[in-house]
């Protein structure tokens, strides 16, 4: 059994965007969107007493993902190794999970109209390759590995060096992308890049419990269109249509 995780060392990262470009070319991510993204300059303070940190983010493959439950078709699911995936055959592009994820890790791909996000390069892992971003990182600031393997580098970074999880009051769902950074760096991160509140209106949950099975069977057929409209409404937080 494994539990995949990533550790990003902000003390080493220079914000060069090599990782995000490698991801883009690996997965044909359209320009303007990203499975992972970088902010190079986050300078705070007054000249000349300033600090800064680069910021790198992606899907956190959370312990308790906020994106799975609301998905009406079951397209979003989690593998035993922790990878949260989207089954594009089932995804109807309703975007409800996009709103649910407190890290804004998901986007709707305009080419396919399906949701897309980081999947730790699962296809590459199967070929014994590192994720594309890890393989190319110009400073070797990204580490990928198995948290259940005490010999892995990420295990040491997380359990021995105390790598940090990007959580706050808005969301505390066990992200599995960990960070190493100086106190000053993490302070900036906390202020600027902490997870946001869920944007889902309450009905989402109601819907999940009551309606899911119905829609799920109907979804393959003519119901899909209605379902999409329905979710779009949910997403905006309006009252769902009384069907």
């Amino acid at each position: 059994m494994s539990r995949y995780a990533m550790v990003i060392d902000l003390r080493k990262c220079v914000g060069c965007d090599a990782c995000t470009v490698a991801c883009r070319t690996e997965w044909d991510v359209p320009i303007g969107h990203g499975r992972t993204w970088v902010e190079q300059y986050n300078t705070v303070g007054e000249f000349p007493n300033v600090t800064s940190t680069p910021w790198v983010a992606q899907c956190n493959h959370c312990d308790d993902p906020a994106c799975i439950e609301p998905c009406p078709t079951g397209a979003t699911f989690q593998l035993v190794n922790g990878i949260v995936k989207v089954d594009t055959d089932l995804c109807i592009g309703c975007g409800i999970c996009v709103e649910a994820c407190p890290y804004d890790a998901r986007y709707i791909n305009p080419d396919t109209n399906k949701v897309d996000k980081c999947d730790f390069c699962e296809a590459r892992l199967k070929e014994n390759l590192q994720p594309a971003c890890v393989a190319t990182c110009t400073t070797n600031a990204k580490y990928f590995g198995d948290l259940e393997d005490p010999n892995s580098h990420v295990y040491k970074l997380v359990y021995e060096q105390g790598a940090w999880r990007n959580e706050n009051d808005n969301a505390s769902i066990g992200p599995n992308v960990y960070y190493l950074g100086t106190e000053e760096q993490l302070k900036i991160v906390r202020e600027k890049f902490g997870p946001r509140k869920s944007r889902l209106a309450e009905p989402a949950k109601v819907w999940k419990n009551i309606l899911k099975p119905v829609v799920f069977t109907a979804i393959g057929a003519t119901f899909a269109g209605q379902a999409v409209a329905f979710f779009n409404q949910l997403r905006k937080g309006e009252e769902p249509i009384d069907d």
Binding site: C16, A18, T20, V21, R24, T25, T136, T138, N140
Partner: peptide, 12 residues
């Protein structure tokens, strides 16, 4: 060691 920058990754 097998690493490339953003530009190298965009060469195609």
């Amino acid at each position: 060691h097998g690493r490339l920058c953003a530009r190298g990754n965009s060469g195609h």
